[in-house]
Simulated assay, not measured.
Amino acid sequence: MEMLKKACDGLSKIREKSPLVHHITNYVSVNDCANITLAIGASPVMSDEIEDILDLIKIANSLVLNIGTLNKRTVESMIYLGKEANKLNIPVVLDPVGAGATKLRTGTSLKILQEVKVRVLRGNMSEIKSLLGLSGNTKGVDSTEKMDDAEDVAILAAKKFNCTVGISGEVDVISDGERVVKVFNGNSILTRVTGTGCMVTSLTGCFLGAGCDGLTSSTAAYLIMGLAGERAYKESGDNIGTFKVRLFDEIFNINEDRLKEGGKVEEC
């Protein structure tokens, strides 16, 4: 399968190049995002101070923007750094955490999408639908939305925002506006660990930083998190703390053979 092969190639590139992934992310999951970036083979930097980030972005290979714990200062930094990244042709991934839950989150996400050229937009169903002006169901920053029309929503969002869109769900759906890819890997226990979505966004940034296109980067990130989640659950069962440790172990040890053996990807 072509996409599975591209994911394997991308993983090799990450471990060969160790791209520097700059994050402006939320303080709930910042440590996990840094560690997942290291686990896959890339290098993280986490800074949101304007006087600091201008120099850092010049040596970065990709930029992750995550509005999970947004405030006026970090929003200003996100837009400022996103524009600088665009000038330097550094790919940007945006995670609009909680879009649809509050006017501030929805408005901030749309403002970033308007002012910054985003390569990948990654969120859950309710977040993506809210950015399209469609009704969505949220519970805090989590989605309670069904995935029945995920393909149509992903295509519509990709065309509207001119980027690849990844929608998390029981089946993850990714589209660049023309092609659609589905990832069937995963385990429901992943939803019981804070920040797994944020970590998928960081993994997306790692693949982008290694030179992969948006569709490959988003697909590979979902695939690796889902497969690692499956394998970690087999080792830990319902022990949530053990599961999280095992999850990092599995991502650290993921390789081409495991991806080819366990990857469940469908290209539509």
Rank of each mutant, 00 (worst) to 15 (best):
D142F: 03
V171W: 05
T108Q: 13
V193L: 11
D176N: 14
A220P: 04
N61K: 15
K111T: 03
C212A: 15
V30I: 12
N239W: 11
K160S: 08
A232F: 00
N137F: 03
N61H: 15
T144M: 10
L259R: 11
I254H: 05
L81D: 00
V21W: 00
T25E: 09
K244D: 06
I53L: 12
A154H: 11
A85T: 02
I53C: 09
E76D: 13
E49F: 00
K83C: 03
V75E: 10
V181E: 08
R122W: 07
Y233R: 14
M225T: 08
V165K: 14
I224Q: 10
A150V: 01
T74W: 05
M1W: 05
I36F: 06
L132K: 11
L94M: 12
E250P: 06
N253T: 08
D55I: 05
K117Q: 13
V165F: 06
V180N: 11
G68K: 12
M1T: 04
R73Y: 02
G166Q: 13
L70I: 12
S77E: 03
A60F: 03
L156S: 15
Y222E: 14
P19W: 10
E261D: 10
N253F: 05
E2V: 01
K13G: 00
R122A: 06
K244N: 14
D48C: 11
E230T: 05
C198H: 01
I128S: 14
V116H: 08
L131T: 04
Y222H: 15
V183C: 09
E16P: 01
V93R: 12
D249W: 15
D32A: 15
C206S: 12
D257V: 06
K13S: 13
N255C: 09
K160E: 12
L227A: 06
F252R: 11
R122C: 01
L190Y: 00
M225I: 02
K160R: 15
K117F: 01
V28K: 14
K146N: 11
F248G: 13
A99E: 11
I112H: 12
T69V: 02
R246C: 09
G229Q: 12
S62I: 00
G197L: 04
Y233D: 14
